[in-house]
Amino acid sequence: MENIQKKEGQRLLSIYYTAGYPTLDSTLPIAKELANAGADFLEIGFPYSDPVADGPVIQHSSEQALINGMCVEKLFEQLKDLRQEVKIPVFLMGYFNPVLQYGVQRFCEACKAVGVQGVIIPDLPISEYEDLYADIFKANNLSNIFIVTPQTSEDRILKIDKLSTSFIYLLSSNSVTGSTLEVGESTAAYFQRIQDMNLKNPLVIGFGIATKETFDKATDIADGAIIGTAFVRQLASPNYMERIKDFIEEIKG
């Protein structure tokens, strides 16, 4: 699997949103609109009843998506024609238990079949991934995206870089989703420390990116940034579809 690509000077914008929210069938139309509006890649969340790494906004979207009837099986049905409809890279993000119940092998095969480039499963530990699942991911040409936090040790970052393809998900701070990025001295030192390691994977900053200002700050340092909570909040509005273009243009300036 190739790393995500960017042109010289480009700031990559990725958007996270929850499948099946605000309505069961909004998953693919939102992806198309985001791609048209200029997002560079997408993370589509599949909902879980107990999302421990998420703040209230994404928790609520997961809860509503489950009420709407979203599940892994349904998501793959909705993404059947993904590659005809959406040309930018798409990643799936969610917790491990729904994947385990669907079957890890079956999940990876379904990702490949619909053209998903990779997955982000925050609660699947590196050791279990290596011991049990890495071969299945590789066989399906699927990237497993790992998270690095300000507390992640250098050894562990090097190991993550070795295991990663596509990109590394850099957390701006140790927090659940929906926090605010503050580039204070310690954050700047943390980003500098990672940059100095010259990792082979692109770095994409997530958690706490909500505005043009925070997006620019993040992409001054990293190859790209992910907006989740701030975008999911937009989806609560009745005319959310019309607002997507403005939202992306506002961020990318």
């Binding site: 790494a53 491990f96 609660d123 530990p125 927090s175």
Partner: peptide, 9 residues
């Protein structure tokens, strides 16, 4: 230990 990286340390 099926935990997000944020809890690992």
């Amino acid at each position: 230990a099926y935990i997000p990286e944020m809890l690992y340390p």
